[in-house]
């Protein structure tokens, strides 16, 4: 599929997906879009990820194939790089935490040394790390901030997040940094796919689709907060009714909210069937989550089977005379 098609087809798909709730709500299907779709999406997300993880777990890790990125544990007098080459499970935990929370591996690209030219040039990879980190963290913070709709009373951490996030007290309602950051990060992630020839070449429709869905999700959310407001008291009533399993749809929530909710549902439902499964997969990656202690501790391959080998006896049988000639000891004379 050509790059243009890869970029366009998913865009069309997402635009159609946006129209669905818009028309649906007009047709009076708000219960379907406010209750059925979100529940279904949530169940798909949960069930799908569970199936995916179990599916991965059904394949064993036959060998201990840690990728080592630092000095292994050796003599006492050799400095062991504990977190890039863990020896114990505890060190693996730290390595995984660095990987999951700070994107350590992408960060490796940050190293800066001798560069050509008069000014310092930064490799694009550094931006990738920054963009990815900015996106994932703001997504998480935004998700957690939404807890204000899902809990009564609202837990304290939400307050803290809102205060930090709205630190600059810009505008009314106050601008959340993460809102701006996530738009910027998504734009960056999208643009680099479109603009950098290498990345455009390797990108599939399934790389653009989630980006568009995220754009739809984020922009509809920002739209609701800053421009075309909806009655969020009712939004919370709906949200609370969903999480207390007593679904009831209040009248008069703006259409934009349904778009937002639908995009979220699409994203959640799409998760387990796509590359987005990396969210769970990153924890299972055998090159990262295993200690590099395979010489000190035996690793078992559950499907290890006996193989045909060329035994010493067969070997000696073939070469006995020649061995004797040069004085090599033999088992049988």
């Amino acid at each position: 599929m050509s790059a243009q098609k890869s970029i366009l087809y998913p865009l069309v798909a997402v635009l159609v997906l946006i129209l669905i709730p818009v028309i649906g709500v007009k047709l009076g299907l708000s219960y379907f879009f406010a209750v059925v779709v979100p529940y279904a999406a949530f169940i798909t997300f949960f069930g799908g990820i569970l199936c995916k993880v179990i599916n991965w777990a059904r394949s064993p890790v036959p060998f201990r194939i840690t990728t080592t990125c630092g000095q292994e544990k050796s003599f006492d007098w050799v400095k062991h790089n504990k977190f890039d080459n863990p020896f114990t499970n505890r060190q693996v935990l730290v390595r995984m935490a660095l990987e999951v929370l700070c994107f350590r591996s992408l960060f490796r690209n940050l190293k800066m040394e001798m560069r050509e030219g008069p000014k310092l040039a930064y490799g694009s990879a550094k931006w990738l790390w920054l963009g990815a980190l900015a996106f994932h963290w703001s997504f998480l913070v935004i998700l957690l901030r939404h807890m204000r709709f899902f809990a009564q009373p609202v837990p304290g951490f939400v307050d803290v997040l809102q205060n930090v996030d709205g630190f600059f007290e810009l505008g009314i309602p106050q601008l959340f940094l993460t809102d701006a950051v996530i738009v910027a990060a998504l734009t960056y992630l999208f643009l680099r796919r479109v603009v950098v020839p290498q990345i455009r070449y390797i990108s599939l429709p399934s790389d653009y689709f989630p980006l568009y869905v995220l754009f739809g999700l984020v922009l509809s959310g920002i739209g609701m907060r800053y421009f075309f407001r909806v009655d969020i008291v009712k939004v919370k009533e709906l949200a609370m009714s969903l999480v207390t399993l007593k679904p009831a749809v209040p009248d008069g929530i703006g259409t934009l909210f349904y778009v937002h909710l639908f995009m979220l549902s699409v994203l959640f439902a799409y998760f387990p069937f796509s590359k987005l499964a990396h969210m769970a997969g990153v924890f299972l990656s055998p090159t990262r989550n295993l200690a590099n202690n395979s010489r000190a501790k035996r690793h078992i391959n559950p499907w290890n089977y006996p193989v045909k080998v060329h035994t010493y006896e067969e070997y000696e049988e073939e070469f006995r005379e020649k061995m004797k000639e040069v004085g090599l000891p033999v088992e049988k004379e």
Partner: peptide, 23 residues
């Protein structure tokens, strides 16, 4: 195209020996 960009832009002479040497 997919590699041109890399040869042109990657400034680290060790990460991009070809671009460096040709330049």
């Amino acid at each position: 195209d997919e590699s041109k960009d890399f040869f042109r832009k990657q400034q680290n002479r060790f990460a991009n020996p070809m671009g460096h040497n040709i330049r």
